Amino acid sequence: MNDKINILIADDHAILRDGLKSALSIDESLNIIGEAENGVEVIELCKKLNPDIILMDINMPEMDGIRASKHIKKECHHIKIIILTMFDNRQYISDALSAGIDGFVFKMAHIEELLKAIKTVYDGDEYFDPEVLKIMKQNYLRSDSAKNFDLTPREYEIITYIAKGLTVSEIADTLSISYSTVKNHRHNILSKLNLKNSAELVRYAITEGLIK
Rank of each mutant, 00 (worst) to 15 (best):
F106V: 06
K119E: 02
L114N: 04
N184E: 13
L193N: 09
S198L: 05
G103L: 06
N194E: 14
V105S: 05
F87D: 04
K137I: 13
N197Q: 03
H77Y: 15
L195S: 06
I159R: 06
S198P: 01
I159M: 06
L175T: 04
Y92C: 06
Q91V: 14
Y204P: 00
N188R: 14
M86C: 03
A117P: 05
M86T: 10
F87K: 04
H78Q: 15
S180Q: 15
E155M: 11
H187W: 14
K107H: 05
K74F: 13
K134W: 09
I93M: 08
A96L: 00
F104Y: 15
E200K: 10
Y161D: 09
R154L: 11
A205Y: 08
L97F: 05
K73C: 05
D123Q: 08
H78Y: 13
A205I: 11
R90P: 08
D95W: 08
L190S: 05
S169P: 00
K192A: 13
D95C: 02
E126Q: 12
K192S: 12
I171E: 08
Y122I: 01
G100M: 06
L190I: 13
S180Y: 12
K147E: 15
I101E: 00
R90T: 15
D102I: 04
D95F: 07
V121W: 07
Q91F: 12
L175C: 05
L151R: 09
K196D: 13
I177W: 06
E170P: 03
N139Y: 13
E170Q: 09
K134Y: 12
D144G: 12
